[in-house]
């Protein structure tokens, strides 16, 4: 069954129409990738789902329930968690405090489960364990991205929105981040992934959508799009 459904969603920044009739669905347990050029509307789509942006018209449901009128902070409680573009690490908080903020909506913060989730974040990203008392603002880009993902997992999301997790990272970090995304997904978290790095994003996607100037122009299983010559020409840098 589909966990998230967008149908005919329109979003505008003032007079600029950013999304035009976006329709997409994310099945529970899948990894779904959105690819497209800069300005195609990928980040706008993510922000609309997480509630940072309101929509002009259209329908959006999560787990069968209408989401359009739900405040952004309450969407987190329903299980939607976004790792924003640029990572959004709280610069003045330590690694541990940042992870703790990720679990802000949880009521079991003194329980063994919470402590176990913290340990799991450190197991996924051992680098963070070494730096647990360091403030976020002093971490490298790769470490910040690990922290951002680890932090989002602390909310125990059902749907994880990842906006450009590989942006600006060194290759060895990119490989690790994508490995972790697959691992998280294997444990049952549904993932919606926005990426410039289309080869990687399509490679692990069950389903993928191509966005152009605010519209969905193609969709299909990741492997199918990966093999498509026109997609290869436009997004994969292969000819």
């Amino acid at each position: 069954m589909s966990l998230l459904e967008l149908s005919d969603v329109n979003v505008a920044y003032g007079r600029i129409q950013a999304l035009r009739g976006i329709t997409l669905s994310v099945q529970e347990g899948q990894i779904v990738s959105l690819i497209g050029a800069n300005g195609a509307g990928k980040t706008t789509t993510m922000k609309t789902i997480s509630g940072l942006l309101g929509l002009q018209s259209g329908r959006m449901t999560f787990d069968g329930e209408d989401l359009t009128k739900v405040r952004a902070d309450l969407r987190v409680r329903r299980g939607i968690c976004q790792v924003p573009e640029g990572r959004g690490i709280f610069p003045g908080m330590t690694v541990l405090e940042n992870l703790d903020m990720g679990g802000f909506v949880r009521s079991d913060r003194r329980s063994p489960e919470f402590a176990a989730d913290l340990e799991r974040a450190f197991t996924l990203f051992p680098r963070l364990a070494e730096r647990r008392t360091q403030v976020g603002g002093t971490l490298s880009g790769g470490e910040q991205q690990m922290l951002a993902i680890g932090r989002a997992l602390m909310a125990r999301p059902r749907l994880l929105l990842l906006d450009e997790p590989s942006m600006g990272l060194a290759p060895q970090f990119i490989a690790q981040i994508f490995r972790v995304i697959e691992e998280i997904n294997a444990e049952g978290v549904t993932v919606l992934l926005v990426e410039q790095n289309a080869t990687q994003a399509l490679g692990l996607a069950h389903q993928a959508y191509v966005l152009e100037t605010g519209e969905v122009t193609r969709s299909g299983p990741g492997s199918e799009l990966l093999a498509d010559p026109s997609i290869q020409d436009a997004y994969l840098g292969v000819s």
Binding site: S50, G51, L52, A72, D73, L74, V76, R77, C81, Q82, P84, G88, I89, F90, P91, G92, M93, E97, D100, M101, G102, F104, V105, R151, A155
Partner: peptide
Amino acid sequence: RGVRAVAQDPATATLMG
């Protein structure tokens, strides 16, 4: 901690609930 989070990054604080 929510107050500090909003002070440091309001949008991300919202994304934390």
